[in-house]
Design a binder for these strands. Structure first.
Lengths: 199, 199
DNA sequence: CCTACCGATCGGTAGG
DNA sequence: CCTACCGATCGGTAGG
């Protein structure tokens, strides 16, 4: 039974994608090269790419690692809150913190990858788009629940609110990474709260 | 007198940077390679890079072309409006249109370049940061003027408003390019108007 | 998981 | 502005 080596191979694979998502958050999914990753991890190029087959498969696995980290840091803390405004409050807090707290050394991986791949085609771009769309749908559902419960005004446009929340997250990533502005997280949180009428 | 050839050389240079900023808005400033640009323009690689010397100088010249296009499409229409809320109204209209009207085939070049270079160092990153900071200062000044004139509430935070406007522009770029969402420009404009209390 | 290698492409230069 | 070329690095493979 090759159980032992299969477990070790899985662990190596996770080490690679973790490192890859860190590097890619700083430099981009495309500048992440197999050779550099091998050097960082003190492995051979063949040892790295052998786990995935192609660079695109490595990028997709890296993306899954990043999506899991987003879910863990932003969704998980809110999942146990009651649906509606209370859950939105928790999401706003966790999300605005996550954007600047060093979960990724180069800021939110998904935001960066979205801008990097939005002009291309292929499986990587499609997966980025589906992940962001799914998160938008979560936000729309929460806002709708809050409206139905009378916690938010009846004329609230859930799609518009979700758009603005996503935009504020992208804006915070921009000012935090480009200007190292320490107010980024606070401005993001305040904007999101105002957007939800929680200010 | 080499006037004729100098003028022609200048025109060739402008042809190169215009093409470069179009391609880079779709694929990024780094994926823009000298060889591909030469192929697109039916020139030799040496003929392209000879005008600039290094790829970094080509990227900087491309950046200046993109900054000029932003200024022309977003600032110029507002420059003749009276300072304050009326000028902000014009900026919001011009900006939200520019983001999706095909000025750049891949959406706002400066937004994309910001996310592409925010994890690096060097002259290109510095120029992107200074251009965005300058635009933020323009916005802060206009909001401050509007507050001083009593057109906006006295407790308005100009820095916060400028942050949110920039964020909404980034968000519109994201949904327009990644999801081809036709509502992007409208959502951006509505968000900006709400942010300024003009809704 | 390794070494050794492939063809393609990168930025850039020499010489004209 | 061109042709012809340089060393470096890319993604990927053969063979073990």
């Amino acid at each position: 039974m090759p159980r032992r080596s299969a477990i070790e191979a899985q662990r190596t694979k996770e080490t690679i994608t973790r490192r890859a998502s860190d590097v890619a958050s700083l430099e981009g999914l495309e500048r992440l090269t197999i050779g550099r990753l091998a050097g960082d991890l003190e492995m051979s190029k063949a040892g790295v790419i052998g786990h995935f087959g192609t660079k695109e498969a490595l990028q997709l696995a890296t993306l899954e690692d990043a999506i899991a980290r987003f879910t863990e840091h932003v969704w998980l803390p809110a999942a146990t809150s009651p649906a509606g405004v209370e859950r939105l409050r928790t999401i706003v807090r966790a999300w605005s913190t996550y954007l600047t707290d060093g979960t990724f050394p180069g800021g939110c991986f998904l935001t960066a990858a979205s801008f990097e791949f939005d002009g291309r085609s292929g499986a990587v771009r499609d997966r980025i788009a589906s992940a962001l769309r799914q998160w938008t749908e979560v936000l729309v559902d929460e806002v709708r629940t809050a409206v139905d419960a009378g916690e938010l005004p009846a004329d609230t446009d859930p799609e518009q609110v979700a758009f603005e929340l996503q935009a504020l997250a992208a804006g915070a990533t921009q000012t935090a990474q480009l200007h190292h502005d320490p107010a980024s997280s606070r401005r993001c949180r305040h904007g999101m709260q105002r957007c939800l009428g929680l200010a």
